[in-house]
């Protein structure tokens, strides 16, 4: 009896020691994470029910910020534009990066160079490439429009200066900038597919397209899901390129949610309202993510 108690005590002690060791590993990161990420997230939720300019006392106003959002034409425009951006960017990026990854997974000469080149826009400074982008897509004398003119297009688009083309310009830029990143993720996924599966389907007489449809796509499903989720989340956060290429204009044609959050907070110092718009963004991202998870489960069950 005493023996068992002793063993139990020792086991408990060991368990406690293991817990403490684990906490010591987690603590450095978790402290920073809790203070600088979790804390502000909770604060943001609370703040969205208050009226506050950052210096005077906070005033609780219930759901007023949310009802105000309902009739705010700028928020409406930002909401719609953000969704247009997501719908334009996600499929284009997904398709092109997958296509490129499949090509660059083949055993061809110089594929490392091609891989590096495709990844380059992603690592390049956004400010720098946005500056170039503004110049090459300049409607007056930019090289893109000059090339289009020599190709016979007499009246090329005015890109960022035209309210019908501004969002298209931003979408093009974003796809170009991020393709390489998602391509690398797909590439990593492709390398996890065993050669034997391709050989087996080759024996069945499958051509390249059939191999892609019957082996690559199904095998790649978890990766595709991961890419789609990250891509969607990231697309909802669009801000930098809008700030640098169109500043939300012309009119409100490229005004997006984060741009409006930034303006409301740091131009108008309407912090409660800005947090309420943040909640809109947050709920939107959350809904889409949950929806994607549900869709993925549905796929798998079929």
């Amino acid at each position: 009896m005493e023996q068992i108690q002793k063993i139990n005590k020792a086991a408990k002690k060991r368990k406690r020691k293991e817990n403490l060791t684990a906490y010591s590993f987690i603590a450095p990161n978790f402290l920073g994470f809790a203070i600088f990420t979790l804390g502000p997230i909770i604060f943001a939720i609370i703040l969205s029910f208050y009226k506050w300019d950052g210096s005077n006392p906070m005033e609780f106003i219930g759901f007023d910020n949310f009802t105000r959002m309902w009739g705010d034409s700028r928020v409406q425009a930002a909401f719609i534009n953000t969704i247009v951006f997501v719908i334009g960017t996600v499929p284009l990026t997904l398709i092109f990066s997958l296509f490129l990854a499949v090509l660059l997974n083949k055993k061809i000469k110089g594929r490392n160079i091609f891989r590096t080149v495709s990844f380059f826009p992603y690592v390049a400074s956004l400010v720098a490439v946005a500056a170039v982008w503004n110049m090459i897509f300049s409607p007056v004398n930019g090289p893109i429009n000059e090339i289009l003119k020599t190709l016979g297009m007499m009246d090329p688009p005015r890109w960022a200066a035209d309210k019908n083309w501004a969002m298209v310009t931003i979408i093009f830029f974003s796809v170009w900038k991020q393709i390489g990143y998602y391509m690398v993720i797909f590439l990593a996924g492709l390398q996890g597919i065993s050669e034997e599966m391709y050989e087996a389907s080759e024996l069945d007489g499958a051509n390249s397209w059939q191999k892609f449809r019957n082996v690559t796509l199904p095998q790649l499903r978890p990766v595709t899901f991961f890419v789609m989720m990250m891509l969607t989340i990231n697309s909802f956060k669009v801000y930098d390129q809008v700030y640098m290429i169109t500043q939300g204009g012309p009119g409100t044609s490229t005004l997006v949610l984060v741009y409006e959050i930034y303006n409301t907070a740091f131009k108008n110092w309407d912090l409660g309202y800005s947090s309420a718009i943040s909640m809109l963004l947050f709920v939107l991202v959350l809904l889409v993510t949950v929806f994607q998870f549900k869709g993925e489960k549905g796929f798998v069950n079929e």
Partner: peptide
């Protein structure tokens, strides 16, 4: 959670 959703607080 997008960083932009809690950058203000």
């Amino acid at each position: 959670v997008p960083w932009q959703a809690y950058m203000v607080p």
